[in-house]
Design a protein around this nucleic acid. Structure first.
Length: 411
RNA sequence: CGGGGUGUAGCGCAGUCCGGUUUAGCGCGCUUGGUUCGGGACCAAGAGGCCGGCGGUUCAAAUCCGCCCACCCCGACCA
């Protein structure tokens, strides 16, 4: 996906009026800014801008989950009934499971979750305590025929999810992996720019002994964006996921599973970051970092400077979108605000003084910057993000060492 | 699934109660020409609708009746 683009060539269609189907902020803004397009109730297309955000979120999720030592894989959406008969969960999930009969008269499901499939993968190739622990994850589309889809992407029938599964020889192992995952979650949500709380939860259809859900705070009141479970040996026993321990005894693996609703996370981020003019993306997930806003592309000096900045930002690996449309400025301002790109560089009347105007979407203030300094200025501001990243890294190390200490104390 | 609501042009709406002056309008958007150009510009001329679908009542239906469909909201559940 292009990290720099001309507006005229991007497939961006904003809406001046909000479609009446939307009532919540995130739903309204996603439609207005042209992030998504509804296909059916609870079924959405992600337009280029929306996909860009989704990919940025995925990137953060991958980085943090990889950091825990988990390995990414990709499981099928299509699942045979036989596996589900083994786990006995068909009646539990009930009508939420989308199913059909294939041409050979076999019933197939569109995966609402992947415990059955991942266990099948693991049980076919892991048989010894020496191979444990194992932690696997994927980012994939889930299908659930929700009774009542709502709020756009918040509760959809087809949605993107990160789901991880841990396999351990014993409860202590599970506790350790669970803890690691929980720490990763905290970092993920922090990096995505949302405040989150974890709380004990009902394990629901997942079963197991213990679970916690991560709830986004703020106006989206209690939106659950992540859930982690200590599953124990329930699934292992049913699906015959056994291994031989040190004494040669056959034992069920101890499992945990960990989900994050990626598409829902996107909605949660919006709920916590907007104003009356539109979206305000946290820098980490914004579709582009910089918006170049030339007042008039038909004026040579403005056009040349804009294109020069476009190239130099590009060269410096900074995501940039250039509003090269030949339309009245008001539209550019409104669209720009609606899209919520963190940095806006306006190229206009100050150019005769050798200056452009820098504005942060989140702030009201505009700053005049010399054309030749603007790149450094942007880099400097972005640098603050890197510092934030470092702090996150430090936080990660601290929490991990703290955990280790706590564990030692327990021992 | 239970309860409530909506369906008229791409989007937002009026008209529906009380059937006929309606050739079904308005705003935005769209097309063409011109003037504009620092916060969704202006003028002019256009294009675009079996009024969600099917059936019924009637001389006559967007409007009344029946059935169906789609979508939204509240509830239980979820990422």
């Amino acid at each position: 996906m292009k990290s720099q683009i001309k507006w005229s060539e991007a497939f961006i269609r904003t809406l001046k009026e909000t479609p009446k189907e939307a009532e919540t902020i995130s739903h309204k803004l996603m439609l207005k800014a042209g992030l998504i397009s509804k296909v059916a109730s609870g079924v959405y297309s992600y337009l280029p801008l929306g996909l860009k955000v989704l990919r940025k979120i995925e990137k953060i999720v991958r980085e943090e989950i990889d950091q825990t030592g988990a390995c990414e894989l990709l499981l099928p959406a299509l699942q045979p009934e036989s596996l589900w008969k083994e786990s006995g969960r068909i009646s539990l999930l009930g009508k939420d499971m989308i199913n059909f009969i294939d041409r050979h008269q076999r019933r197939m499901f569109l995966g609402p979750t992947h415990e059955e499939v991942i266990i099948d993968v693991v049980r076919k190739r892991v048989h010894s305590w020496k191979e444990l622990p194992i932690v696997l994850y994927q980012i994939q589309t889930k299908f659930r025929d929700e009774v009542r889809p709502r709020f756009g992407v918040v509760r959809a029938r087809e949605f993107l999810m990160k789901d991880a599964y841990s396999f351990d020889a014993d409860q202590e192992g599970l506790d350790k992996n669970y803890e690691k995952m929980r720490e990763a979650y905290e970092l993920i949500f922090k990096r995505c720019g949302i405040k989150c709380q974890s709380q004990k939860a009902d394990s629901g259809i997942m079963g197991g002994r213990f679970s916690e859900e991560f709830v986004a705070e703020g106006e989206c009141k209690e939106l659950e964006i992540g859930h982690i479970f200590k599953l124990g040996d329930t699934y292992s026993k049913k699906l015959k996921l056994f291994f031989l321990d040190k004494n040669g005894e056959e034992k069920p693996m101890i499992m945990g599973c960990y989900g994050i609703g990626i598409s829902r996370l996107m909605a949660a981020i919006i709920e916590g970051n907007y104003d009356e003019d539109g979206l305000i993306w946290p820098r980490s997930v914004s579709p582009y970092s910089v918006l170049l806003l030339p007042m008039n592309m038909e004026e040579k000096a403005i056009k040349d400077t804009t294109e020069e900045l476009y190239r130099s930002l590009q060269k410096n690996n900074i995501d940039v979108i250039m509003d090269d449309r030949i339309i009245s400025p008001g539209i550019k301002f409104k669209d720009g605000d609606l899209l919520g790109i963190p940095f806006r560089i306006l190229i206009g009347k100050e150019l005769k003084n050798g200056k452009v105007e820098l504005k942060l979407r989140r702030e009201k203030r505009t700053e005049l910057v010399k054309v030749e300094d603007i790149l450094q200025e942007i880099k400097k501001l972005k640098c603050k993000d890197y510092q934030q990243e470092h702090e996150n890294l430090k936080a990660r190390k601290t929490t991990i060492s703290l955990t280790t200490k706590t564990q030692r104390l327990k021992e």
